[in-house]
């Protein structure tokens, strides 16, 4: 079955979403509509329609004019094995001793690596992002320096890849929590897929607000790969639940936000031990006095 696409760009999220909605009324109707931010800092948004027959170009021209968008570019997509293409793009991620891979790359695990099977699916934390990669590298660095943790928590765990990585190299039961119940379900599925049931306890919680998290504190390693705002809000709670000499690995921080986060955590008695920038994202390793 042929697939036609009609793509345009315009400024602003709201006009882009409105144009996407207007395209739903086209005849022939699109089978899919996408609204995407163009990630080049231009403020432009791309709006695209997918059709199984050639779209009405006159109608597209009217829509573009009505919403102040550039003229639509219409093309027929070549026949492509999209599943194979995606699998090629979702390559394994190597972070120190850790090897994060999807099931399609199960035959590529290097000898001696700590493997973590994570499908790119319904929770954040596939390794294909500078924040997760930075956290895994920070964990690898701490372990290489001889640090051994006995109580680990991953706050905002997503796939629970970080808690599982800790469980791969240290003994005991790690904790992983997320505010999103879907992420908790995905995390538990990932534990089963990796044969790590019982090594990580997954909880639905906001921050440290859970009896199990209270009972297990203080921790000697806390992961928090969230975003700057929640990290700053969490600083007093996180610092108070960190054991003296314990570490916090924080990410989800844009490079130009890192100094602010470092300052807030320093006021709470946790000081910078290491920072790494990967692309636009910074990962911090902090140590409690």
């Amino acid at each position: 079955m042929p697939t036609f696409t009609a793509l345009t760009t315009l400024e602003g999220k709201a006009p882009a979403e409105a144009l996407g909605e207007a395209m739903e009324g086209m005849e022939p109707e699109p089978t899919g509509i996408g609204v995407f931010e163009v990630e080049d800092g231009s403020g432009l948004w791309e709006v695209g329609g997918y059709f199984t027959e050639a779209p009405d170009e006159a109608e597209l021209a009217l829509l573009a004019a009505a919403f102040g968008a550039k003229p639509f570019a219409v093309s027929e997509l070549p026949e492509t094995d999209w599943v194979a293409k995606v699998r090629r793009e979702l390559r394994p991620v190597e972070a120190g001793r850790f090897f994060v891979y999807g099931s399609h790359d199960a035959d590529k695990i290097p000898e001696g690596a700590e493997p973590l099977l994570i499908e790119a699916a319904m929770a954040f934390g596939t390794g294909h992002h500078g924040t997760t990669l930075g956290c895994l590298r920070a964990l690898d660095r701490l372990a290489t320096d001889g640090f051994v943790s006995r109580s680990v928590v991953d706050v905002g765990c997503g796939t629970a890849v970080l808690a599982m990585a800790a469980a791969r190299i240290w003994e005991g039961t790690m904790l992983a929590s997320d505010i999103d119940p879907v992420a908790v379900e995905v995390a538990e599925a990932n534990l089963r897929a990796n044969g790590m049931e019982g090594r990580v306890e997954c909880l639905e919680a906001t921050g440290f607000d859970h009896p199990a998290l209270e009972a297990r504190a203080p921790f000697d390693l806390v992961f928090a790969n969230i975003l700057k705002g929640p990290l700053i809000d969490l600083a007093p709670d996180l610092a108070s639940r960190l054991a003296p000499g314990g570490h916090a690995i924080l990410s989800g921080i844009l490079n130009d936000q890192a100094d602010e986060v470092i300052a807030v955590y320093a006021r709470n008695g946790t000081n910078l031990a290491h920072r790494e920038e990967i692309g636009e994202w910074t990962t911090l390793t902090l140590t409690k006095e």
Partner: peptide
């Protein structure tokens, strides 16, 4: 399934088509 629109729409963005279909 991976036929249009799911395959091209997700595939062009590098999203895991089979995991989407399964879920």
């Amino acid at each position: 399934n991976p036929s249009p629109p799911v395959g091209p729409a997700l595939g062009q963005r590098g999203i895991n088509i089979m995991e989407f279909c399964k879920a």
